[in-house]
C-alpha cells in the first residue's frame, strides 16, 4: 500500500519568517469576551486569511493589529502583539507611525472627496512629502500595484467618486500603499464588488504579497481558499485552527473548520 500526499509536500508559508506574532490575546467589550487566548504567527510576505462566521473575532483581531480599537470605550485587552519583535502595545509606542507601517482597507470603499490623485497623495502629504515629482512617483507606483493605473492614468484629476465600486476599492488599496506600509490589513475588501473587480483585487493581492505582509478577512470561504498561504479559523472568539492555507481549506483537521468550509453551519 502506497500513500501519496502532494498537499503536505508543497512548500508552506510556515517556512517564511514571522512578521506579526500575537500571544494569548484576550479582548473584552464590556462583559463580552470577544477574543480568547489568540496566539498566531503571521508569516512575512504571504497572504494570511482570517475567516469564520460573523462574530467570531476575526475583524476584532485585525483592528487590534492596527490599534484601531484604542478609541473604543469599555474595552479591555490582555496579551501581546509583536510586529518585527516590537510589542505594539508597549507604553511609548507611536501609534501614528505604527499605522503608517500597517495599512488598512475596509469592506466599503470610502474614497475621500476630491480627485483620484488627491486620494493617493493625501497620506504622503500628511506625512510631510511635498516634492511634486516624488508624489507623482507614488501616485503611479501605488495605482500600478493596486492594478488600477491603466484604467485611470488619463484621468487622474477627475473626482474619485466617478469611479466604479471596484475601482474605488482598488483606489483605497492604492491609498494605503502610497504610505509604503509593510503590512496590509484588508477587511472583506471585495464584499461589494462584482466578480471581475473581485478577480482584479485578488490578482493584485498575489502581486502585492511579494512586497507586503497581508492579512485579509475574505468575503467567503472560496475566496479564502483561492488566496490563502496561511489561514486561521475563528469561531466565537477562539482561533480554532491555523496552518497552511491549502491544508486548512482543503483538509481541515478540526471538525468545526470542516463543517464551516463545507457550509454545514455558518
Amino acid at each position: 500500500m502506497v500513500t501519496h500526499d502532494p498537499a503536505s509536500e508543497a512548500l508552506s508559508a510556515l517556512q517564511h519568517p514571522v512578521k506579526i506574532r500575537t500571544e494569548n490575546v484576550n479582548l473584552f467589550y464590556g462583559d463580552v469576551h470577544a477574543l480568547k487566548d489568540v496566539t498566531i504567527d503571521v508569516p512575512l510576505h504571504a497572504v494570511t486569511v482570517f475567516f469564520g462566521p460573523a462574530g467570531g473575532g476575526k475583524t476584532t483581531m485585525l483592528r487590534l493589529i492596527n490599534r484601531l480599537n484604542d478609541l473604543v470605550d469599555n474595552i479591555r485587552m490582555s496579551g501581546h502583539i509583536w510586529v518585527d519583535g516590537d510589542d505594539i502595545y508597549a507604553p511609548g509606542t507611536q501609534v501614528a507611525a505604527l499605522r503608517r507601517r500597517i495599512g488598512m482597507v475596509f469592506a466599503l470603499p470610502l474614497p475621500l472627496p476630491g480627485t483620484i490623485r488627491s486620494n493617493v497623495v493625501y497620506g504622503p502629504k500628511l506625512a510631510g512629502i511635498r516634492q511634486a515629482s516624488r508624489l507623482d512617483e507614488l501616485v503611479e507606483s501605488s495605482l500600478r500595484q493596486a492594478a488600477l493605473w491603466d484604467e485611470v492614468k488619463d484621468r487622474l484629476d477627475t473626482p474619485a467618486n466617478q469611479l466604479s465600486g471596484g475601482q474605488q476599492q482598488r483606489l483605497c488599496i492604492a491609498r494605503s500603499l502610497a504610505l509604503e506600509p509593510e503590512i496590509l490589513l484588508l477587511d472583506e475588501p471585495t464584499s461589494g464588488l462584482d466578480p471581475v473587480s473581485t478577480a482584479k483585487v485578488e490578482a493584485s493581492l498575489l502581486e502585492l504579497k511579494k512586497r507586503y505582509t497581508i492579512i485579509i478577512v475574505p468575503h467567503n470561504v472560496q475566496q479564502g481558499a483561492r488566496i490563502a498561504d496561511y489561514a486561521g479559523f475563528f469561531l466565537m472568539g477562539e482561533l480554532i485552527e491555523k496552518g497552511d492555507g491549502r491544508e486548512v481549506f482543503n483538509r481541515p483537521q478540526n471538525s468545526h473548520t470542516e463543517d464551516y468550509v463545507t457550509g454545514r453551519f455558518g
Binding site: 472560496q222 481549506f249 482543503n250 463545507t262 457550509g263
Partner: peptide, 8 residues
C-alpha cells in the same frame, strides 16, 4: 457551488 474540503 464551488465546494471545498471533503465535499470537493
Amino acid at each position: 457551488q464551488q465546494p471545498l474540503a471533503s465535499d470537493l
